[in-house]
Amino acid sequence: MLDYLRLEVRRTLRDAGFVIGGVVMPVVMYLLFTNLGDGADNEWRTASMIGMAAYGAMGSALNTGGGVAEDRSIGWLRQLRITPMSPRQVVTGRALTGAVTVLPAIVAVLVAGGLVNGVRLDAWKWAVIALLLWLGSIPFTLLGLGNGYRLTAQATGVMNMVCNLTLAMVGGLWFPLSLFPGWLRSLSSYTPTNRFAQLGTSVADGHAPALGAVLVLTGWLLAFGSYAVVSYRRTARTV
């Protein structure tokens, strides 16, 4: 299964679309949004760094589902079914691929924050933020897998993009929530993306993530997880 993980990670990193959309874009957007006009205050430089890292991680996590849809359409999943690998190993390998491929986006944006934008945090904070963003990306991997197992390759691409953009904007990953009208701000607090970024910002502010954030994210984890399982079961019969 580790060989499978290695193969899939290689494939993902060689995908120009993944590298540009999942790693380069969040870094560029982060640097643009924090340096345009008068520049940003320190607080926004840090919050936006975490928001954009979350945005990149989400894009990469969803991309895992795109890979699954592609594998289905070219018959690769069928081919895997007639190797001695068990279906469980295949699915686990795919999920682990998602876990590994979110790391470049997180690391790239945090590095840009530290080196280019001069964000200063305690060493432990950097580590914990990276870890929480990594763990917090799991629900999005599951959402992507749900799409990838259910939809065609093309539809998965579109669906992932819609999920990605909607969740990023409504969740306040691009712009500070304080710019939102009140009703959107309360809606935002129920999105997985908002709570995902909140994991990181709480740590940057020096306290543990709020219980609310953990609860909301856990709820989404269960919802997207069920979605992925149902989609997989539906597909397993036809793959």
């Binding site: 060989d3 499978y4 193969l7 290689r10 494939r11 060689r14 995908d15 592609e70 594998d71 070219i74 018959g75 690769w76 069928r78 081919q79 007639i82 190797t83 001695p84 690998m85």
Partner: peptide, 23 residues
């Protein structure tokens, strides 16, 4: 299998070695 297209973005050697490793 019929109608299966090659997996993109891997080399022939990588692909065949991966499949070999599962047996």
């Amino acid at each position: 299998l019929q109608d299966s297209r090659p997996v993109p973005r891997v080399t022939v050697g990588e692909l065949v070695a991966f499949v070999a490793g599962t047996y």
